[in-house]
Design a binder for these strands. Sequence first.
DNA 1: TTGTATGCGTTATCAT
DNA 2: ATGATAACGCATACAA
Lengths: 329, 329
Amino acid sequence: MSSINDVAKLAGVSTATVSRVLNDTGQCSPRTQQKVIAAVKELNYQPNILARSLAKASSDNVGLMVNSYRGSFFAALVSQLQESFENQNKFLLTCRASSSRESELQAISRLKSMSCAALVLHSRALTDEDLLQLAEDKVHFALIDRFVPGLEDRCVTFKHRKSARLAVEHLYKKGHRKIACLSGTMERHSARERYAGYAEAVEEFELEDIHIGYGHYNQDGGYKAAEKLFSRRSDVTAIFTCSEQMCVGAYEYFHHAGLRVPDDISVVSIDSVDVCQILSPKVTTVTFPIEDMAIETQELVCRMMDGKPAIKPAVFTPNIKIFHSVKTL
Amino acid sequence: MSSINDVAKLAGVSTATVSRVLNDTGQCSPRTQQKVIAAVKELNYQPNILARSLAKASSDNVGLMVNSYRGSFFAALVSQLQESFENQNKFLLTCRASSSRESELQAISRLKSMSCAALVLHSRALTDEDLLQLAEDKVHFALIDRFVPGLEDRCVTFKHRKSARLAVEHLYKKGHRKIACLSGTMERHSARERYAGYAEAVEEFELEDIHIGYGHYNQDGGYKAAEKLFSRRSDVTAIFTCSEQMCVGAYEYFHHAGLRVPDDISVVSIDSVDVCQILSPKVTTVTFPIEDMAIETQELVCRMMDGKPAIKPAVFTPNIKIFHSVKTL
DNA sequence: TTGTATGCGTTATCAT
DNA sequence: ATGATAACGCATACAA
């Protein structure tokens, strides 16, 4: 690897001049500019980002912490974040924690020691106090899908409640009146909000509240919840599943039980669109604009890094994608 | 962020001593050791990894280049690689290219400029010559799922041919004699190998070669291929799909056409297990041990970084996971 | 055992 | 417009 010194020698100028040409800082004659650029090409010179960061006392690195890579949500998130930051000449360093407070703190330490100028956190385990402390320490960071009072300007969030409401409303408009909600435990904020949205719609449309909670929003939970539901009652015409994995589990149960979607049972799910395209018939789904959200996050973070005043980020609203899992009654 | 200077001052020693204590290089009295460690704790000192890498002229960074994050293959790969390298105190930097030679070259440049001591490449677009040149340039790197003559010691590969053979053999043993192969274009090596494995089995078991190629191994290709197949003939009792996405598409077609798996048609697929657990009935699938492969890759790369002699990495063999998509005739 | 001094590759300040 | 030169934070060869 050739260094700035090699370029300087070959071009017959000083390293300072090379740096100026490359970073477009300060004036310089067209002729020397040419020489430098020629030398750079000839040596196939790549600036050492480490040294640059060290010298500038600030890097172009942005750290991302997540607790999983699995599922289309993370694939879309990581993919779009990386692309957006690269468009701003930032480099995204990704670090995976394992859903415990300690591992999340460690991941953040690690990212900070890589001179990340800012962090993007999809934190599950850190407490509100941890995050407030981090803000206190003047660390630039944004939170994804988490709301912390006092950190409103850093939270990129979803309207979980509205998404559930949208799902139930769709079923209602299609003539359904016995609509069950399949969910998991209520530990996470998003889970509580989704249920609240269901409850809200139930009240507004004067429906019966049929809520089945089971497990952790995964495939098995969906299967068991559906099984539990239909062992109790047969008058339900539609279900709303609170996660895509639960939807998969419910479909699995229906296949086992010989129930046909949508003829025997209508389904609306929530979450990313991928899984719901895989199932047959494809599932009508309430989704969030993950890509838009990633772009907004990048803008938010870049604003913080530039020292610009914080603007409360948008709260992202869900869209409903209509497929073939709902029967009109 | 406090620096090594702050620690040295607080501990009343020189920076050299602090460095020695922290890196456990050279001797030092227990007392000064105590003082240094106390100072480190008090200041919550984190060594600046950039500066360290710069000083050592070698970093603990390993670069990973992929062309996609989507799909369970990449989720498992990235996840396991990151964990394995972290266990070795290496940090994995991930960079996404976009399936063109230029973008792959650019991604590699980027990773090199981050002082990556080694690279892990899942390259689709680089030529064999590009990769040979990279080796010529003394870059440490490993290739995933790609075989380049002359770089045998760096290639972590799969037995694609055997995986297809295994799928067909399973169907044969279950009594099937009319077995169709659904694939996409034959550009990629893995695609050719999988078809070759099918052809091999066809010959051995004296079956009819019923091959339908359509599109690019994606869901739509699977749908169209299945449609094409059944518009031509009705005597086929089983299909072998060359990718999980094609399998999804085939299932979609069967649902549309009113064909039941496995009663009307048996299915065996290839690839990661995730998608095939989502479909109902779950699909009997030939999979590769992605986690093992990631661990082997990490070991291979670390060996190279330590200057140890290269050992030809294992070629990973497929496993068949039996589910409910095959009928015994 | 410990400290001094130098270099890693870059940027930035100050001269010229 | 350009060139010395001093940082940036750390590791290390060499002295002491």
